[in-house]
Design a protein around this nucleic acid. Structure first.
Length: 227
DNA sequence: GCGTGATCATTG
DNA sequence: CAATGATCACGC
């Protein structure tokens, strides 16, 4: 099967996402000759990887934007029929060891969220996978306002890591971003530092966007669409 | 084992 | 029923 190649320009990407609006996951899977799972319990990232393949995203599992040449990150977001996000959005793993004292603009969170192609998918749990439908994908560039908001959260969460407060790290910190487990299971441990700066083991964490953030983005986008 | 893609499942 | 904590597949 021929998978699409990466779009060379933003204009080309914009053309492709216009053609994608309204398609169901079943239609896209059929076009790519991909089997559709019964449910996502054992293939949780299936929809995201399907859309990546459909749009020719190239970064694979590198910690870089999906469309490397364009510097654009692809994020699918499950929504209900009213447009409300159903899940938080994973951003990137949080570094717990090595150089964790960098600046906001050096962070993987900034690099991933600076320029994003959001692909909302109407995907209520009761809907069969093939019937789930691409809504209106849109390109989003981080504004000064959101950069101010997100960098504040990032600093708060990063401080917890830098100061070794692993016992206090949970999903309740941060207004828009949060830290949550990111591992195969709860027994996994990775290298980190304690409060004295000595090496210890701690549960791996990831940065996630709360649904409040994506809900606001979608609301803004919806208003623009109706102008 | 880590980082990519995320959603599941239990709890308050 | 939303939010937090737990979990699954894949590539390397």
């Amino acid at each position: 099967m021929n998978f699409p190649t990466a779009p060379k320009t933003i204009a080309e990407l914009e053309q492709r996402i216009e053609l994608m609006a309204g398609l169901t996951l079943g239609e896209i899977a059929n076009e790519l000759d991909v089997m559709v799972p019964e449910d996502l319990t054992v293939e949780k990232g299936w929809a995201g990887q399907l859309i990546e393949a459909y749009l020719g995203a190239t970064a694979g599992n590198l910690p870089e934007p999906d469309f490397q040449h364009l510097g654009i990150e692809l994020k699918t977001i499950p929504i209900d029929s009213s447009g409300k996000p159903l899940e938080t959005t994973f951003v990137s793993v949080a570094p717990l060891s090595g150089e964790i004292t960098g600046t906001w603009q050096d962070s993987t969170v900034y690099k991933k969220l600076n320029h994003v192609l959001w692909v909302p998918i109407i995907a209520e749990r009761k809907m069969a996978i093939p019937h789930r439908q691409i809504a209106t994908p849109f390109l989003w560039k981080m504004t000064k306002h959101w950069e101010s908001e997100l960098s504040r959260d990032w600093q708060e969460l990063t401080d917890l890591i830098v100061f070794g407060h692993h016992d206090k790290i949970n999903a309740t910190h941060g207004q828009w971003l949060q830290l949550r487990p990111k591992a195969a299971d709860s027994s996994v441990r990775t290298d980190a530092y304690d409060q004295q700066g000595n090496p210890v083991k701690a549960p791996p964490k990831g940065f996630y966007l709360r649904t409040d953030f994506t809900r606001q983005l979608l609301t803004q986008q919806f208003q623009l669409d109706t102008l």
